[in-house]
Computed example of a mutant assay.
Amino acid sequence: MKKTTRVKMPQDQDISPDMSVDVGGLKLKNPVLLASGTCGYGVEIGDLIDLSALGGIVVKGLSLKPRQGNPPPRIAETPCGLLNSIGLENIGIEAFIRDKLPWLRKINTRVIVNILGNSQEEYASLARRIDGTDGIDAIEVNISCPNVLAGGLAIGADPNAAAGVTRAVKAATGLPVIVKLSPNVTDIVEIARAVTAAGADAISLINTPVGMAIDIDKRRPALGNVVGGLSGPAIKPIALRMVWQVAGAIDVPIIGIGGISSASDALEFLMAGASAIEVGTATLVKPSVAIDIIAGVRDYMKKNNFLRIDDLPIPRD
Rank of each mutant, 00 (worst) to 15 (best):
Thr4Tyr: 15
Thr5Met: 14
Met9Ile: 13
Asp12Lys: 04
Gln13Leu: 15
Asp14Trp: 06
Ile15Tyr: 03
Ser16His: 10
Asp18Ser: 08
Asp18Val: 11
Met19Arg: 13
Val21Ala: 12
Asp22Glu: 08
Leu26Phe: 07
Lys27Asp: 00
Leu28Cys: 12
Ala35Asp: 01
Ala35Pro: 02
Ser36Trp: 05
Ser36Pro: 07
Gly37Asn: 11
Tyr41Trp: 08
Ile49Phe: 09
Ala53Pro: 00
Leu54Cys: 07
Leu54Ala: 09
Gly56Asn: 14
Leu62Ile: 04
Pro66Cys: 03
Arg67Asp: 01
Asn70Tyr: 07
Pro72Asn: 14
Pro73Lys: 00
Pro73Met: 02
Ile75Met: 10
Ala76Trp: 12
Ile86Lys: 02
Asn90Phe: 03
Ile93Cys: 00
Ile93Trp: 00
Glu94Thr: 13
Glu94Gln: 14
Phe96Ile: 02
Arg98Leu: 10
Arg98His: 13
Lys100Trp: 03
Leu101Ser: 12
Pro102Ile: 00
Trp103Thr: 04
Trp103Arg: 11
Leu104Pro: 03
Arg105Ala: 12
Asn108Leu: 03
Thr109Ser: 14
Ile112Asn: 06
Leu116Ile: 14
Gly117Tyr: 03
Asn118Pro: 00
Ser119Val: 12
Glu121Ala: 04
Tyr123Phe: 06
Arg129Leu: 14
Ile130Tyr: 08
Thr133Gln: 15
Asp134Ala: 15
Gly135Lys: 02
Ile136Val: 06
Ala138Cys: 04
Ala138His: 08
Ile139Gln: 05
Val141His: 02
Ser144Pro: 07
Cys145Ala: 14
Leu149Glu: 13
Ala150Ser: 13
Gly152Asp: 12
Gly152Ala: 09
Ala154Lys: 11
Ile155Cys: 07
Ile155Tyr: 08
Asn160Tyr: 13
Ala161Phe: 10
Val169Ala: 11
Lys170Gly: 01
Ala172Met: 01
Thr173His: 05
Val177Gln: 09
Ile178Gln: 10
Val179Phe: 01
Ser182Thr: 15
Ser182Glu: 06
Asn184Phe: 01
Asp187His: 02
Ile188Trp: 04
Ile188Pro: 05
Ala192Trp: 09
Ala192Glu: 07
Arg193Asp: 09
Arg193Gln: 15
Thr196Lys: 07
Ser204Pro: 04
Asn207Gln: 11
Gly211Glu: 01
Met212His: 02
Ala213Met: 11
Ile214Lys: 06
Asp215Tyr: 11
Ile216Lys: 00
Leu223Arg: 06
Asn225Met: 10
Gly228Val: 04
Ser231His: 04
Gly232Asn: 01
Pro233Cys: 12
Ala234Cys: 00
Lys236Met: 05
Pro237Phe: 12
Met242Trp: 06
Val243His: 06
Trp244Thr: 05
Gln245Leu: 14
Val246Glu: 02
Gly248Cys: 08
Gly248Gln: 15
Ala249Gln: 03
Ile250Ser: 06
Asp251Phe: 00
Val252Asn: 05
Pro253Arg: 12
Gly258Arg: 02
Gly259Met: 04
Ser264Tyr: 09
Leu267Arg: 11
Met271Trp: 04
Ala272His: 04
Gly273Gln: 12
Ser275Phe: 07
Ser275Asp: 14
Ala276Phe: 04
Val285Ala: 15
Pro287Gly: 06
Ile291Val: 15
Ile291Gly: 05
Asp292Arg: 07
Asp292Met: 05
Ile293Arg: 11
Ile293Phe: 10
Ala295Arg: 15
Gly296Asn: 02
Gly296Tyr: 10
Asn304Cys: 05
Asn305Asp: 08
Leu307Lys: 03
Arg308Glu: 13
Arg308Ile: 00
Asp311Thr: 06
Asp311His: 09
Asp317Phe: 13
